[in-house]
Every structure is written in C-alpha cells, then in structure tokens.
C-alpha cells in the first residue's frame, strides 16, 4: 500500500512524464467491477461520475457484470416479478435446520428477493432469509409483527449487504408469535 506521500511524489513524476492520467471510463468500470461491495460503496464518494458508475441508486447502474447482485438489494420495489430464484431446491429446503414451526415448508413460498445466492421468501407472518447450502443457522432478534412484509424484506436484504460473511450462513427471522 503506498503511503499518501509516496503516492503524491510518484504521481508528480508520472505527470511530468505523461501529463495527467486520463483513464478511460471502461477501464474504471473494469476495475470497479472487481471490487467487493464494501469498497464499491465507499468509492461512491470519490467523485460524482464514480457514484453513478457504482450501483446502488435507482439510476441505471453501468456495472451489470459484478459478481454480487448489489443492485437487486436496493432496487425498489422488490416484487416476485422483478426477482427470480433460478433453481429452487425443495430438497435443500426441507433438510434445513430452521427454527420455524414444522408446518412452514420453504418450498411452498413465493420469493421476495435474492442476493448473493441467498433468497428471501415471504413467509407470512415471518420473514426468512435462506441460504440453500447452509453451514449454520442464525436467528435474528424478534421484530415487530406490525412491519409489513415487503418493507421488512427490503430491510433484511439491506442488512445482508453488511458483510459477505452472511453469505455462508442461513439466516432466519421468526415473528414474535412463532414460539
């Protein structure tokens, strides 16, 4: 990692040699598309063009080839028509060790959203996040049952952006009356 001082020095040299950097947009996009979501979110602050290059807000994101489905999580509204689960696997679903009452079968549910391979089925009155290949199950704190399912789903999907660690976990949010 170059220190800022060294950076400035080197850049001045580079400037002398080949004027200022003029990096074409497609190279910027190429580099940004290889960044983890967290860096990408931070680098939106670099300048306005980078903000629009990095996905998140409504306006047509240019990066469509990022490995993660960053845009999916924040694209409002989340509906079953805008998102799809390519390979629903009821076998994995029934094998899940989850804290829900047994009557709840994941394969019976419509999908609200998905991100990074995790799916978010609406499970009225519950909200669930399900990793089809779970290593473990994490229970969220109980949430108010008055929250509508769509807004809760979006909230949970946003939470999932917080870390890629979540990717390896199965997450479930039971409603207060599930016990």
């Amino acid at each position: 990692m170059p220190s800022r001082k060294a950076g400035r020095h080197r850049r001045d040299m580079a400037k002398g040699a080949m004027s200022a950097y003029n990096i074409p947009n497609d190279i910027i996009v190429r580099i940004l598309s290889r960044l983890p979501v967290k860096s990408l979110a931070r680098f939106r602050c670099v300048c306005k063009p980078w903000q629009s290059l990095s996905p998140t807000t409504d306006s047509s994101p240019s990066i469509t080839t990022t490995p993660s489905s960053f845009t999916t999580a924040t694209a409002p509204p989340l509906t079953t028509s805008s998102l799809s689960l390519p390979h629903p696997n009821p076998i994995s679903a029934t094998n899940l060790h989850h804290p829900f009452p047994p009557r709840l079968v994941l394969s019976d549910m419509d999908l609200v959203g998905s991100i990074n391979g995790l799916v978010c089925p609406p499970l009225s009155p519950h909200i669930a996040l399900w990793n089809p290949q779970p290593n473990s199950t994490v229970t969220f704190p109980h949430l108010k049952s008055s929250v509508s399912i769509p807004s809760l789903s979006r909230f949970v999907l946003c939470l999932m952006l917080l870390g890629t660690i979540i990717r390896s976990l199965g997450l479930f949010v039971p409603s207060p009356n599930s016990g």
Partner: peptide
C-alpha cells in the same frame, strides 16, 4: 486515497 491515486 483512491481519489488521489486516480487523479480524480
């Protein structure tokens, strides 16, 4: 730092 590196 990224801003500086890319001369943005």
């Amino acid at each position: 730092d990224v801003r500086e590196i890319f001369g943005v």
